[in-house]
Design a protein around this nucleic acid. Structure first.
Length: 968
RNA sequence: GCUCGGGUGGUGGAAUUGGUAGACACGUUGGACUUAAAAUCCAAUGGCCAUUGCGGCCGUACGGGUUCAAGUCCCGUCCCGAGUACCA
């Protein structure tokens, strides 16, 4: 009993350690470390290329390696994808199941700013920790294919794609991206008069002679308006706290997603991606992919297609402004054009200052000043407040010729449409409120509807009145006629507008991909030659912006481009003749994640992102699992890049992931103590009542399953509890509970290392699946683990029924009952995996093992397929049993068992028999009987006659194999 | 406000898509084994009534409806969650 094994075995769950040989209990620690080592050494999960087998690609969203490491919520999706990948391997597929790191990012940089440590070092350390944690969970990743976005070998190709985007334009005639060379040829032939392309709004029209007369820099400036990535002065979301711009999807509720800092609007010269060129295709593509509906809806909303018309109003000439300007507006309700009583421009609109009359100058300027000072958040906070100013100018109504007053107001957004609207107060609530507030008339153009109280916004039932040639028509017809009339006058046309904006691609950060761009003597952006990639990040002294406000790369002293030597040289050699400054911005976080799935197919390739052979074989992702928080970020941008790659012929599929699943979040269960306000007295939960208290979160690890707090440990945990007084109930301190996001700041993080240590990785894997449906969010509760742990011990015992619980299986023929249990399980589990209902398959395993135990089953023909069946879920124990069953190879490629109907069919079945739908009794009936025979047999039985009590049945309903209902 | 989800025991969640609601597990209670604890095993566990009778009634947020039969389908109401938000 004094053996050193005693305590170890006791904690490992041996039922009676003193009496049993050591190797007989389920020793998960030994088993798991043995097989993890075996898999790594034998490269069991290497994806073969080339291969004759059919391919299957299972992808996880790769993580950002944060310093906090993994908590139990992170691996949920990885476990699910691992089960599926292992399942597909059993089915004979050549499975690609890779993992990597999205290793550029803000936290490592902020840590660098604080400590001066290079982000690469922090990142490396974090990755090491992530790898350890992932390894201990037994994932079947092919680590030979690992990618890291911050490695030059990887971002070489991110930079390469950027260059291809720069060298491409979007041809609306062919509806695809083409090399910029084809555009130059077109310009030379016919200028841009015949060209239909996605380009900047302000692009001027020019003919071929004009084009040829332009100087090189002028040509270059024009081309920049067409390139798929371009440099432009844009209104951006600037976050002063983070010192960088943010994309729309990086802002949540008007503050930055990371850190929650305020964001303001600012005009800056930035790289942008012309994603709007792909708006329609991004929308259409959703039809062809099996992604969750909520995610598709989110992308649809984000793209925000609306159909309407573009209408041009002309300003009326006046004394101070003799010139007439066109004002283009977008409307979804051209049918309401006769209801226009004013126009509203965004305060930022270019025309505002030109048209404002002298007497309104002061007021308008003050208003513009006031709105520009308001942050995005302020603006959102008081949506209700109506503000605006009259410019003193008027526009001419295209049909009536009446003078329409032009106002400015911040409810009109500069970033949407043209930044100007025709205001129809009777048909739009915002226009209505604005009109009421400023006393502008509200003409009614709807038949039989009152607009005394509010605007009439129902499109479907509207009948237009008081509207010249469209009076009496419905919305649809009226719109069509108005568009026709506008086109005839040359003052408008039907138009589709999108909410989607071009994506800002510059970040004022250090820890990101450098742009392969320098600025020539004209200040125009030029690409460095492709063969000079990767352009690696320079070393800097400080990771902060420079004193002149330049991005951190401005601190680099070795960051200039010698165009002759084709190499990076020291800044002091810049002469603007042959040596030029390099771009100081870096790329945003989503750059590295937008094509990583293709890089996994051929990660070591030095000649290209992916070889033609590799992508011809692997094609696309068959199953992609990750969080829904990326709906309008990564998952939209990566689709855009894929479509671009497809247009240029580098990838064979326009959509890169056939099926996508969003795993839910695992939430934490925080523990709360109650401090009596103004004291250091803490009340147990039941004693709080009406007493005013502060809720303070404490470490969940100090609380047991009965919500009882360990006061001793709490006092050690934080000094504020050292001298505190605790008021107990029944001698215990009971904490309150709150389910919320797992986070360090709530002290509710449960660490997978701890769980693996106590119950093993197989238990953790099973439990995470058992917790509930994959796509649903659910709270973590460590107590529930004992159920799946008990199941694994039972499973182990099933194979160890020999003397002293030694391994023993029999070669005898299994009983029909055994086979029935097995095949029932194969059928159910297979269906569950195929529909991603992993939670119910764990239940099915439990039932199966309980049944086989009760049947005292020991036959190889049952136990062998069972091990294969369980191996995707609990791979370590399955490998151990497999090897004990006498197999030399890993279980990973063992063929997946098939269920046979012959073992499932029952000759008879208990039919429930009901009267008027109410269950009365059951009857044993043969399954071979036809509907009519069942009916006859039931009616002939004594029990039926008894229940009928002399009445005669009106109708008998038989659902084959299920139920008999007799209507009386 | 709009768009999607969703409301089932003390808890997490099942339910072959209209066919015996509550599988499986946690928790709880009782029992066996043990000097004891742990572990293991057995039994009970939606509510109410009857429990020396085999049973009965009510139950899937609420109110209606369709149907022999509704957690599931339809209409209305309430509540919760997620996304989005002056998008013209």
């Amino acid at each position: 009993m004094d053996s050193p094994y005693f305590w170890a075995e006791l904690t490992a769950g041996a039922s009676c350690p003193g009496l049993l040989p050591r190797n007989m209990h389920y020793d998960f620690r030994k088993i798991e470390s043995r097989w993890q080592k075996y898999w790594a050494e034998n490269k069991t999960f290497r994806a073969d290329f080339p291969s004759d087998k059919p391919k299957f690609y299972v992808l996880d969203m790769f993580p950002y390696p944060s310093g906090a490491g993994l908590h139990v919520g992170h691996p949920l999706g990885y476990i699910a994808s691992d089960i599926y990948a292992r399942f597909k391997r059993h089915q004979g597929f050549n499975v690609l199941h890779p993992m990597g790191y999205d290793s550029f990012g803000l936290p490592a940089e902020q840590y660098a700013i604080q400590t001066g440590q290079h982000p690469a070092i922090t990142t490396e350390a974090n990755i090491k920790r992530y790898r350890e944690q992932l390894d201990q969970l037994g994932f079947s990743f092919d680590w030979d294919r690992e990618v890291r976005t911050s490695e030059p070998d990887y971002y070489h190709w991110t930079q390469w794609i950027f260059m291809q985007l720069f060298n491409s334009w979007y041809n609306r005639k062919t509806d695809k991206a083409e090399p910029i060379g084809t555009l130059i040829i077109a310009f030379e032939k016919g200028g841009n008069l015949e060209v239909e392309a996605a380009c900047d709004e302000d692009t001027p029209r020019f003919g071929p002679e004009e084009w040829r007369s332009f100087s090189e820099p002028e040509k270059e400036r024009l081309l920049l308006k067409y390139r798929l990535t371009y440099l432009a002065d844009t209104e951006v979301n600037w976050c002063p706290e983070l010192g960088t711009v943010l994309a729309n999807d990086e802002i949540v509720n008007g503050v930055s997603e990371r850190g929650g800092h305020p964001v303001i609007r600012k005009k800056m010269t930035q790289w942008s991606m012309r994603i709007t060129a792909y708006a329609q295709r991004l929308l259409d593509g959703l039809e062809s992919i099996d992604w969750p509906q909520p995610l598709k809806d989110a992308q649809k909303n984000w793209i925000g297609r609306s159909v309407g018309a573009s209408v041009v109003f002309h300003t009326q000439a006046s004394e101070h402004q003799p010139e007439s300007f066109p004002i283009e507006v977008f409307t979804t309700r051209p049918d309401t054009i006769f209801g226009v009583s004013f126009m509203t421009l965004a305060p930022e609109h270019d025309l505002v200052l030109k048209i404002t009359s002298p007497e309104h100058q002061k007021e308008v300027e003050a208003y513009i000043e006031a709105t520009s000072r308001r942050s995005e958040r302020d603006r959102m906070a008081d949506v209700k407040r109506i503000t605006g100013a009259f410019t003193g100018a008027y526009a001419e109504h295209p049909f009536t010729g009446e003078a329409v007053p032009i106002w400015i107001g911040d409810y009109v957004l500069a970033g949407y449409g043209t930044g100007a609207v025709m205001s129809v107060p009777c048909g739009d609530q915002r226009d209505y409120d604005f009109a009421k507030h400023f006393g502008i008339p509200i003409p009614n153009i709807f038949e039989g509807v009152s607009v005394e109280e509010e605007a009439f916004e129902d499109k479907g039932s509207a009948v237009i009145a008081n509207s010249d040639f469209i009076t009496g028509l419905n919305q649809k017809e009226a719109s069509r006629k108005v568009i026709e009339a506008l086109e005839a006058k040359g003052q408008g046309r039907g138009k589709v507008n999108y909410r989607l904006r071009d994506a800002v691609f510059s970040r004022q950060r250090y820890w990101g991909e450098p742009f392969p761009v320098y600025y020539d003597a004209e200040g125009l952006p030029r690409l460095i030659p492709e063969n000079c990639l990767p352009l690696t990040l320079p070393e800097v002294e400080k990771y902060l912006p420079t004193e002149t406000g330049e991005p951190p790369l401005g601190n680099a002293t070795h960051w200039a481009w010698d165009a002759q030597q084709e190499e990076v040289v020291s800044n002091d050699r810049i002469d603007h003749k042959t040596v030029f400054p390099l771009e100081l911005n870096t790329m945003p976080g989503w750059a590295g994640s937008s094509q990583y799935f293709n890089r996994y197919m051929d990660p070591g390739n030095q000649q290209g992102l992916v070889s033609d052979e590799a992508i011809a074989y692997w094609q696309d992702v068959d199953l992609y699992i990750g969080g829904s928080e990326h709906a309008t970020g990564h998952l939209l941008y990566s689709r855009f890049w894929q479509k671009f790659m497809y247009d240029r012929g580098w990838v064979p599929r326009e959509e890169y992931a056939k099926k996508l699943i969003n795993q839910g979040m695992i939430l934490g269960t925080s523990a709360i103590v109650y401090r009596k306000s103004g004291t250091s007295q803490y009340l147990s939960k039941g004693l709080v009542g009406d007493v005013p208290v502060e809720e303070i979160r404490v470490d969940v690890n100090l609380v047991n399953n009965a919500d009882e707090l360990d006061l001793e440990k709490l006092r050690e945990w934080q000094p504020q509890f050292k001298e505190a007084e605790f008021i107990l109930e029944d001698g215990k301190y009971i904490v309150g509970r709150e389910v919320e996001k797992m986070s360090k700041r709530w002290f509710n993080v449960v660490n997978p290392d701890q769980v693996c240590e106590e119950y093993g990785a197989d238990s953790l894997r099973l439990y995470e699946m058992f917790l509930g449906p994959l796509e649903q969010s659910k709270p973590w509760n460590t107590a529930g683990l004992s159920g799946v742990y008990g199941f694994l011990k039972k499973l182990w015992k099933l194979y160890h029924q020999g003397p002293d619980r030694t391994f023993e299986v029999l070669d005898a023929e299994p009983s029909r009952e055994n086979l029935k249990s097995l095949h029932k399980t194969i059928k159910k589990v297979t269906e569950d995996i195929e529909t991603f209902s992993f939670n119910t398959s764990v239940s099915t395993f439990m039932i199966c093992v309980n049944e086989l135990s009760a049947q005292n089953c020991r036959e190889r023909k049952v136990l062998e397929p069972l091990a294969v069946l369980i191996s995707p879920y609990a791979p370590h124990i399955a490998e151990e049993l497999w090897s004990k069953l006498g197999h030399e190879d890993s279980i990973a490629t063992a063929p997946y068992p098939h269920w046979k109907a012959e073992y499932l069919v029952e000759s008879t079945k208990e039919y429930p028999v009901s009267f008027n739908g109410k269950m009365r009794f059951t009857m044993e009936l043969s399954l071979d009987l036809s509907k009519e025979e069942v009916e006859a047999a039931v009616l002939a039985s004594d029990r039926t006659k008894q229940q009928l009590e002399g009445r005669s049945p009106k109708k008998v309903i038989v659902v084959p194999g299920k139920i008999v209902n007799i209507v009386v």
